[in-house]
């Protein structure tokens, strides 16, 4: 994947209404791209992968995306 494709992937992740993600890091590899970051639901991981496969059918896309945890805080910071 060249630098221009990397740019297009980044723009697509933000501007495609099905993804609208600005916080995902696109890491170029020898044979494709790895997406790294966190999203708000498992459905969004699948959607991102699907949108990229549709736009870049020949590109090998690996997703290293997690769903951000929503646990209850156990600590309080004194300011």
């Amino acid at each position: 994947m060249n630098e221009y494709t990397e740019g297009e992937v980044q723009q697509l992740l933000t501007e495609d209404p099905r993804t609208a993600e600005q916080g995902i890091r696109v890491v170029r590899t020898d044979d494709g791209v790895v997406l790294v970051g966190e999203v708000e639901s498992p459905e969004r991981c699948a959607q991102i992968e699907s949108v990229l496969h549709e736009a870049f059918p020949g590109l090998k896309v690996r997703c290293d995306l997690g769903v951000t945890r929503v646990g209850v805080p156990q600590e309080v910071e004194q300011i």
């Binding site: 929503v70 646990g71 004194q78 300011i79």
Partner: peptide, 11 residues
Amino acid sequence: PVIKQAYNVYE
């Protein structure tokens, strides 16, 4: 994604 929990609490 920074705090990685539902909310932080500050006193």
